[in-house]
């Protein structure tokens, strides 16, 4: 059984602050996903070019 996702909680935080925290967290996650996806595409493209250069592809 999967554990529950951690809750963000602080005694002094207003609902607006919690929402802002979640917004920033989501933004970081999306940016990281985009960076990782771009890195994968880059490595794939470099691999294709390198293999093509050495005559091991097509």
């Amino acid at each position: 059984m999967m554990p529950n996702a951690p809750r963000v909680e602080h005694e002094n935080w207003s609902p607006e602050m919690v929402a802002e925290f979640k917004r920033r967290q989501r933004g970081r996650n999306i940016a990281l996903l985009a960076a990782l996806a771009a890195f994968c595409v880059l490595i794939y493209a470099v691999a294709v070019v390198k293999l093509h250069e050495y005559g091991q592809m097509w």
């Binding site: 951690p6 809750r7 602080h10 925290f21």
Partner: peptide
């Protein structure tokens, strides 16, 4: 155990902070 306590002075960095 499932509660994440966070310093009230920090809401965390934005993606643009990491870019900066």
């Amino acid at each position: 155990s499932d509660t994440l306590l966070i310093n009230s002075s920090e809401l965390g960095a934005t993606a643009s902070d990491w870019l900066a």
